[in-house]
Design a protein around this nucleic acid. Structure first.
Lengths: 144, 144
DNA sequence: ATCGGTGCAAACAATTTGCATTAGA
DNA sequence: TCTAATGCAAATTGTTTGCACCGAT
């Protein structure tokens, strides 16, 4: 997750017919450097380091755009807000540790199985699967 | 569905050391009669029919209490708000139809399997599993 | 030179809270 | 009676929007 990633994403923005602006580059950089899922206000804070004066509204607008382009993805943890991450090959689920508040995503068959099951059993055509598991991660269990 | 259910829930409230008030009874009645998942403001509207003057704040307070007592359960669909339903034997997932906006819950092994998988593969102790699948339900697919 | 994007401030929507009053037990 | 619970209104929080100005293409 060095700057190369950002350049590539920036390119995708441009290719989709959007302008590459300072706020957008700042948000992309923050997301690319992030090791965890970030809410908009946190992204705003971090972006301010790169590019002072980025406005929170622009962060929201950028995130929405990135979401529409499929470059970023929003996760809802149950509290009101949205947490963002760069898109990774979909069909992942999230483990939300209630103790250390960490959120990790995991790919795997799990979600695919759920999807398959639904089509068979309920004739439901799944568009997207939101699977968030709240609990206590392995690390936190040890230091209990 | 009929008032018997409400009486039983009311009893559980009292047993837990809480007072049985008009707003609380109204919310319980609405939830018991509901055939779908309701957001707080909708519950407020419907409760007003039974008991005029119930305040929206009281609806929120009641819902929170019912949640803590395990009598009701909140579902997050991804839009900002919470949708409520009476507690049914847990471990269900929700199918959210993007076309008709319906939300149906289904019990079954699915969630239990996810739970088991997590413990084995990641040492994660699952407390609650939120599985919401967005897509198009069977009914809506037919009339496409 | 355009017109998409930004900053700013005000608007919104969902939910929460402080406080004086009311009513369940 | 005595304290939990309510109504009301104001405060919070997360997110969106209108609009005049600015800058990427």
């Amino acid at each position: 997750m060095h700057d190369g990633g950002v350049e590539q994403l920036a390119e995708q923005l441009r290719e989709a017919g959007h302008r590459l602006t300072a706020p957008r580059r700042a948000v992309l950089t923050v997301l690319a450097e992030a090791t965890e899922h970030l809410p908009a206000d946190r992204i705003h804070e971090l972006a301010a380091a790169h590019t002072p004066e980025v406005n929170l509204a622009s962060v929201y607008r950028t995130l929405q755009l990135l979401g529409e382009l499929g470059l970023a993805h929003e996760v809802r943890l149950g509290d009101g807000r949205g947490y963002w991450e760069l898109a990774h090959g979909e069909d992942a689920y999230h483990l939300h540790c209630l103790r250390c508040r960490s959120v990790t995503h995991h790919a795997g068959d799990t979600v695919r199985q759920v999807r398959a099951h639904l089509g068979d059993a309920h004739g439901f055509r799944a568009e997207s699967v939101d699977l968030v598991v709240h609990g206590v991660c392995a690390a936190c269990q040890h230091e209990a």
